[in-house]
Amino acid sequence: MTRNVAITVNGTERRASVEPRLLLVHFLRENAGLTGTHIGCETSLCGACTVLMDGRAVKSCTVLAVQADGRQVTTVEGLASGDQLHPIQEGFWEEHGLQCGFCTPGMIMCSHDLLGHNSNPSDGEIREALNGNICRCTGYQNIVAAVKNAARKMSKPIAARAGAR
C-alpha cells in the first residue's frame, strides 16, 4: 500500500508514491536525492537529520514523509544561493565549526531555527538550543563561535535597514 505525497523541497515540488512508514529523511535522501541530510541514529537523538519544515527545525527521522505532504522542507542544500553561502554556513567555515562534517548539516539547520527567533543569542542560549544535536569531533566550542559569527553577519543588513527607515 502506498500513498501519494507532494513535498516542496528547497522550493521544488517533489511528487512520489511512498510507503506510509517511509521516514522523511529517507524520502529526502532516496527519493529527492539530497544526501546532505545525514542519518546518525534514526531515533531522534542525534540531530544529524535536522531540516526545516515550514521554517521550523524538525528531526527528519521522526517525521514520516506522509506527514510532510503539502509542506515546505528546507535542507542544507537549499541554504546557499548559487555561489553565495548562507551566513550560517560562512560562520561554520570561518570559525572551524566542523571537522568530519557529519553533524554539520543538522547543526546548521538547528542554528537557523535558533537565529530565526533569537537574533543575538548568548553562548548559553546557543548551547541550550543545540542540545538535541550531537557532535563528537569539535567539543562544540567552535560551533558556538560559528553561530555567534553568523548572528553578527545576519544582524548587519537588518540594522542597516532599520537605520534607513
Binding site: 546532505g36 535542507t75 554556513q89 561554520f92 567555515w93 572551524h96 562534517g101 557529519f102
Partner: peptide
C-alpha cells in the same frame, strides 16, 4: 580556513551511505 569545508557545509560531499 579549511579547503574541505565548502562541500561539507553545503551538504554536497559524499559519505559512503
Amino acid at each position: 580556513k579549511r579547503k574541505e569545508d565548502p562541500r561539507l557545509i553545503r551538504g554536497i560531499s559524499h559519505y559512503t551511505d
